[in-house]
Amino acid sequence: MRQFFSELSRSKAGLAGFILLVLFVALAVLAPWLGLEDPTRGSLRARMTAPTWDGFWPGAHPLGTDEVGRDILSRIVHGSRTTLAVAGAAVVAGGIVGTFLGILAGYAGGLTDRILMRLVDIQLAIPLMMLALLVVAALGPSIQNVIMVLALTSWIRYARIIRGQVLSLREREFVQSARAIGASGWRIMLRHILPNVMTPALVVATLELARIIVMDAALSFLGLGVQPPNPSWGRMLADGRVYISTAWWSVTFPGLAIMLTVLGVNLFGDWLRDYFDPKTRSAR
């Protein structure tokens, strides 16, 4: 752990990404105790208040209010809870399933490989958004269903990339040496191949996390994500869009929140990739 932080502090970009992420996660976790206004309660008298800085509460809106007078800061902070939880869970679920199936397809080859890859092809042939709409419409919009749908649109990317890596890895001599020391197929997949594909999997995960946050926003935008009045970044963007010429703050701040989170994820992910690669780690 200490090594992790000492390495992290060497990289400005990695550290910046990590701080951004920690900040957002901390805000999400601590949201109910920050003393913010109720994110669901509007006040018609305070509709479309521009951002003003006259200290925090009571009644101050440092980031302004939306069209029904709800505090945007409070909504962003509370919205990060759902956004981060949904995106995180979807990335982890999709990543685990996709990486596992990718390794299996690449290492086992033959029929297993063909079935899994045709499945990926089939899914790629269906527009992801349509698939997502279909599933959410059929199962109803709930947080679990949204996570499931996002993971479903995500696993194929891991599976494809990881399979390609494994195809070249399994021909490497160390796999044969592992077999020569008596390792079984599962053991080779989990202990020898998995650590080798962690780097590409992490890269995919950072890209996916960014994509999933945006996709979650898109689902909310279409009304299939988290249901109102609960705040979500995507829905804030969707609702504020109409007022972009008169109330810039109603879309700018949720948009910034999405951007900063994605930026943080990418910076940190980039560093994490180097951290997990023993070659770059000792080369510093």
Partner: peptide
Amino acid sequence: FQDPMSSLNPVL
């Protein structure tokens, strides 16, 4: 095996 460069797993 023949090739000591690739017979060891590079990430372990």
